[in-house]
């Protein structure tokens, strides 16, 4: 059986594929708002200690020290003063960081990012600024949606008419998850048996919905760090298992023994729905999955 989605995806990959001559990755966004989202996504996806060097053609640079999806220092910023992580108060540091990221995302021409090992190991007291803090601060800074790369096809819209986008923290990236995706439907259906539920987009671990015990005031509320780590695990799993296991997929994690709860992860390439359920409700989990993936159903 040939899945047309897989063929489309492979075609898209082959069209975009180019030989890498440098360890740096080019940010694909052409507007400031898209690039800022990519910068934030890069920070969010950095779990191990790294020095992230963002650079532009005209030699503007923003070098961040990142660990566990948190920015622990600004090592270089050519477009403004770096915040003093030791001297300034946390709110000032966060706002200054958001300004630097926003300013850098508005740089004309292509942008690149290089992820390197840090020069020194992070100190035990390097708490850093969390993604949610940076996103909230960024959301208060408007950036333009005007294309910033010359050879990018542009619309006839004049610069004066270009819309200014103010991003809400929870919507910093994206088209909403389709309400008909398998993961979305699983998230909805799991309300019948799950004690806690979370729906997360694949490429951005900002939750679309959190319910039951996983709601913000619930005992199993996963904070941004847990979600970032979880996203990182699943990304590694996808990378390594792609040749053997395709999407959509249902992953059920169960305890070694006893009646402790399990977690069911329904993933469709667009989103991941996590449902925490009692072990004895595995039958309901499997029934829901089969009803959603049944051919012709």
């Amino acid at each position: 059986m040939i899945d047309t989605n897989i063929l489309d995806m492979l075609g898209d990959i082959s069209r975009r594929a180019t030989a890498r001559l440098s360890p740096a990755n080019t940010l694909s966004g052409t507007t400031a708002s898209e690039r800022r989202v990519e910068i934030l996504r890069t920070i969010r996806g950095t779990i191990l200690p790294r020095r992230l060097e963002f650079s532009s053609e005209n030699e503007d640079r923003l070098v961040l020290e990142v660990s566990s999806s948190r920015v622990t220092d600004v090592l270089e910023a050519t477009q403004g003063d770096a915040p003093g992580f030791d001297a300034d108060d946390r709110e000032q540091v966060t706002m200054r960081l958001a300004q630097l990221i926003s300013k850098f995302s508005e740089t004309i021409g292509p942008l690149e990012v290089l992820s390197l090992h840090p020069d020194k190991s992070p100190d035990a007291d390097d708490v850093g600024i969390t993604m949610s803090e940076i996103e909230t601060a960024c959301a208060e800074i408007a950036v333009s949606d005007t294309p910033l790369i010359e050879d990018t096809p542009t619309t006839a819209q004049s610069e004066d008419e270009a819309p200014t986008v103010i991003l809400e923290p929870q919507n910093l990236t994206t088209p909403p998850t389709s309400t008909k995706s398998v993961a979305h439907l699983f998230h909805k259906g799991a309300a019948a048996f799950a004690s806690g539920r979370v729906l997360v987009r694949k490429w951005n671990d900002t939750p679309v919905d959190m319910a039951g015990d996983c709601a913000p005031d619930g005992p199993l509320y996963p904070d941004a760090d847990v979600l970032a780590q979880f996203a990182s695990d699943l990304a590694a799993w996808d990378t390594d298992s792609a040749d053997a296991i395709s999407h959509p997929q249902l992953i059920v994690l169960r305890p070694s023994g006893g009646k402790a709860p399990g977690i069911a992860l329904c993933r469709d390439g667009e989103a991941t729905a996590a449902a925490i359920h009692e072990t004895r409700k595995l039958g309901a989990v499997v029934s829901l999955w089969k009803s959603l993936t049944r051919k012709g159903g």
């Binding site: 015990d213 005992p219 199993l220 296991i245 395709s246 999407h247 959509p248 997929q249 249902l250 992953i251 059920v252 994690l253 169960r254 305890p255 070694s256 023994g257 006893g258 402790a260 709860p261 399990g262 977690i263 499997v286 999955w289 993936t293």
Partner: peptide, 18 residues
């Protein structure tokens, strides 16, 4: 959250449907 005892060994079984 108290839903698992402190000495529980964690997840020991994974079933994947795809």
């Amino acid at each position: 959250a108290g839903t698992v005892s402190d000495d529980a060994p964690g997840f020991g079984e994974i079933a994947i449907f795809a």
